[in-house]
Design a protein around this nucleic acid. Structure first.
Lengths: 187, 187
DNA sequence: GCAGTGATGACCCACTGTGTCATCACTGCT
DNA sequence: AGCAGTGATGACACAGTGGGTCATCACTGC
């Protein structure tokens, strides 16, 4: 817990998002960000590992959150069903962030570097889920595959739901995506 | 086709792999690489976008190769079966590289930065496969999900096969991984 | 020969990431 | 109130990166 200026990190994050939107991610420099936030470049480095990281603040908690959701799913469910249940629970978690994240999404979409980092964050989530699935009895190899497939199902369901939030709820989209995948797998 | 020194790129690649192995990826500098290759830092930049890229030379062709494999699969096969067939075909392509790539794999495993880039290259393959699946009649959304799942199946099969190359062939591992996934999906 | 083209070298510059040290605000203890 | 401890910040320095520009050189096709 910082004592003097709890807002420093948040100020940097906000300033960065503004500058990235105004001038593009590539053109904005760390120095410009810190000037807008009233801080120095050195301080930026203490909060964020690099320039990209400022757009992913807070995402460190995601892996644990998802893994816990898998752990807390009904113990009688087999691994993949537990994973689906966890996805639904996590989806509710994201629901509120959708609108606020629009600007952020636009910035990320504009830069390959940022998409690269986003995949890394997603991979960290997948990795944490692997461990949780192992605790449910899956082998390492199976857990890896299932976690990756779970990620694919989540992304598909979330995208479809974002396009048509009114028609159906997120849980239904998850079930439908999983059912569609199962149909494709059994010819 | 370069006219004066077709080996320049290859010399840089080889020098980089040596230095990364000797001193670690982080500690080796681009200047050291170019000195070993008898070139200048500026020339390095003309061949590779950045320091990481030197480890992924040639991977630009992978997306097209995989997409073509999907396109040339038996036209009567439904999308996911076509994808599996393409994975098997591509697996033969990788078989020869396994041993030569060991050193490269070790370097990548040692650096989060490089793993990040590797995911990017894999994502490019997935994206190309999405387009090929669309040409086979899948919707954009389905194609995305199937391509991601195909990637998961491939990685699983390849890993298992690398561990036990003698016991079974790669095609069998692909079929078994897909069957296992199907079993998990239908509870 | 000779102009054209593409690879390279030399020089230069803004930016990044990081180490180090001093300063300053606030805490808890006496 | 005073004081040592702690953590955030600023000031400064430095190696390394990525990229712009221009001159030079080797090889091509005419």
């Amino acid at each position: 817990m910082p004592r003097w200026d709890p807002e420093a990190k948040e100020r940097l994050r906000a300033a960065a998002l503004e500058l990235f939107t105004e001038h593009g991610y590539e053109n904005a420099t760390v120095t410009q960000i810190t000037e807008r936030a009233g801080l120095t470049r050195r301080t930026f480095s203490r909060y964020f590992a690099d320039k990209r990281d400022v757009l992913f603040a807070g995402s460190e908690q995601l892996p644990d959150a998802m893994a816990d959701a898998v752990r807390h799913a009904d113990p009688s469910l087999p691994p993949f069903q537990a994973l689906l249940a966890a996805l639904v629970a996590a989806g509710d978690l994201f629901a509120g962030l959708v609108s606020q994240a629009a600007q952020r999404r636009a910035v990320i979409a504009s830069s390959p570097e940022l998409q690269e980092r986003e995949r890394t964050k997603l991979a960290a989530v997948t990795e944490a889920v692997v461990e949780a699935l192992r605790e449910r009895g899956a082998t390492e190899s199976s857990a890896k595959m299932l976690a990756q497939v779970g990620t694919a199902v989540f992304q598909t369901a979330f995208e479809r739901w974002s396009d048509q939030p009114a028609d159906t709820d997120f849980a239904t989209q998850v079930q439908e995506a999983a059912a569609e995948l199962a149909a494709h797998l059994t010819p």
